[in-house]
Write a protein that binds this DNA or RNA. Structure first.
Length: 117
DNA sequence: CAAATGACAAAAT
DNA sequence: AATTTTGCCATTT
């Protein structure tokens, strides 16, 4: 496990309940949005427990990952709906649940604290 | 050490 | 509109 992956898990834990973030946004928190692909890799290895709510991370289109570690996208959708997230024609209602720029800033600040930057 | 891989995403067909 | 490249990056083989 590398520092970067730990950092990614930390960021995922900061996603507010009832909201979702895209892989790119998490990558942006790492300081390089091009890490988006790696973010996906890391989450795939994730133990997927309550500690790291990886189900709140979705792709840019708002659809769930078809390869969600536990139970596939069905399970992921279920978890999201349990948090009050609304789905519209098969995908998350992005305009309503995607983290706002304010959320992003908050997360960035919290992450800085955690990392003692 | 070169080549392949992947829970992505945007551009080009 | 839908499918295929093409760019990206750390990790793995």
């Amino acid at each position: 496990m590398s520092d970067l992956s730990l950092k990614i898990y930390s960021a995922v834990r900061l996603i507010p309940r009832g909201k979702v973030a895209t892989y790119s946004q998490i990558a942006a928190l790492m300081g390089n949005c091009n890490l988006r692909r790696y973010v996906g890799n890391v989450l795939h290895k994730n133990p997927c427990n309550e500690r790291t709510p990886c189900h709140r991370v979705i792709n840019a289109k708002g659809s769930c990952s078809c390869n969600f570690a536990f139970g596939g996208e069905e399970e992921q959708k279920k978890k999201l709906e349990a948090e009050g997230i609304v789905f519209v024609s098969g995908h998350v209602d992005m305009s309503r649940h995607l983290i706002t720029p304010e959320d992003f800033e908050t997360m960035r600040a919290e992450l800085s604290k955690i990392l003692y930057e």
